[in-house]
Amino acid sequence: MTSYSLILRTAARFLLPLLLMFSIFLLLRGHDLPGGGFIAGLVASCAFVVYLFAFDVAPVRRMLRLDPRSMVGVGLLLAALSGVPAVFFGEAFFTGLWLELELPRIGEIKLSTPLVFDIGVYLVVLGSVMAIVMALAEGEE
């Protein structure tokens, strides 16, 4: 599996943090601009997949910490639960709730239940892609 290509390994080291940051950017931007949890999750899994090609499965597994299948579960849980808080405010399920915070220096931040939903989607996509890719990579050996 491991290709001992120096170029790929060096590039993967740089690409991993870059792509992960980009994926977070896409995730946060997604609310009213192109982006969102799905595409961000795909970008994040690209980051890990490139790393996996360069360094094999084991380091990636260590880096993820959470088993990808559990990650899918946590993501689904987040997404499903993001619809629940609305109920406590007397609204229907999945009604969007917004929390606006004034932070010193940073400025105004809007936190919302759709964001929680998107983070859930992000984790589901990342988890399922990684589960598939890792299973394929391990199956080859």
Binding site: D67, R69, S70, V72, G73, V74, G75, L76, L77, A79, A80, L81, G83, V84, F93
Partner: peptide
């Protein structure tokens, strides 16, 4: 919603 949450939960505690 309940079975969805339960399914996700059981997946998380794989």
């Amino acid at each position: 919603v309940l079975p969805l949450v339960l399914g996700a939960l059981s997946l998380a505690i794989w």
